Lab assay of single mutants.
Amino acid sequence: VSFKITLTSDPRLPYKVLSVPESTPFTAVLKFAAEEFKVPAATSAIITNDGIGINPAQTAGNVFLKHGSELRII
């Protein structure tokens, strides 16, 4: 599955597209996205474009099915 993750704390709204296997734990996606944007993973969260928080204790495939591919990291 592929996710387009936007960094909301930067006024330029940079984004990265990450492709991972469906079975990947979403905690790993969060950690990798945080490292890519050089923000601390421990204090970061991934939310939907509607501002709904995503529980990272599920697979990337589940997140994709529930929330789609466009996400934000805060």
Rank of each mutant, 00 (worst) to 15 (best):
S19W: 02
P56W: 06
G51V: 00
K16V: 14
A28M: 13
F37D: 02
I52C: 11
V1T: 04
A57L: 10
S2L: 04
V17T: 02
I52T: 15
I52K: 14
S2K: 06
T48Q: 09
K31T: 13
L71D: 01
Q58A: 09
V39L: 06
E36H: 09
N62Y: 05
A33I: 06
L71T: 01
L65K: 10
A57K: 12
I54A: 05
V63M: 01
I47A: 15
L7W: 08
Q58P: 00
A57W: 08
N62S: 11
E35W: 04
T27N: 05
D10V: 05
V17D: 08
F26N: 03
I52S: 10
T43Y: 07
A42L: 04
E70W: 03
V1A: 14
F64M: 11
R72Y: 04
F64D: 03
I5N: 01
S23H: 11
Q58R: 09
L7F: 13
K38Q: 12
T43K: 11
K38N: 12
S2C: 09
S19C: 11
A41T: 06
K16A: 12
P21K: 14
K38E: 10
F3K: 00
G51M: 03
K38I: 05
G53A: 14
P56E: 14
D50H: 07
P56L: 15
I73A: 01
I74S: 15
D10Q: 07
S44P: 04
I47P: 01
A60R: 00
T6H: 07
S2F: 07
P40L: 04
V17G: 05
F64L: 11
G61P: 00
S69L: 05
D10N: 09
N49Y: 05
T6F: 04
I74V: 07
A28H: 15
I74M: 06
V20M: 13
F3G: 00
A34S: 10
L18T: 10
V39D: 02
R72W: 01
E36K: 12
S69G: 08
V39P: 01
V63Y: 02
L30H: 15
S69K: 11
T59R: 08
I46C: 06
T43R: 07
G61F: 10
V29D: 02
K66T: 11
A28K: 12
R72H: 05
G53R: 15
V63K: 01
V17W: 14
H67S: 10
T48A: 15
P21L: 13
I73S: 01
A33D: 02
T43Q: 15
F3W: 01
A57D: 12
A57E: 12
P40C: 09
S69W: 06
F64N: 05
A42F: 02
K31I: 09
A42K: 10
F37P: 02
T48Y: 02
A45T: 09
A60H: 00
P25Q: 14
S9D: 10
P14H: 07
L71K: 01
T27P: 11
F37H: 14
S44F: 06
E70F: 06
E36P: 00
D50C: 07
F26R: 01
D10E: 10
A33R: 00
G51I: 00
L7A: 13
I74H: 10
E35K: 08
S19H: 11
Y15F: 04
I54Q: 00
V17I: 05
A57I: 10
Q58V: 03
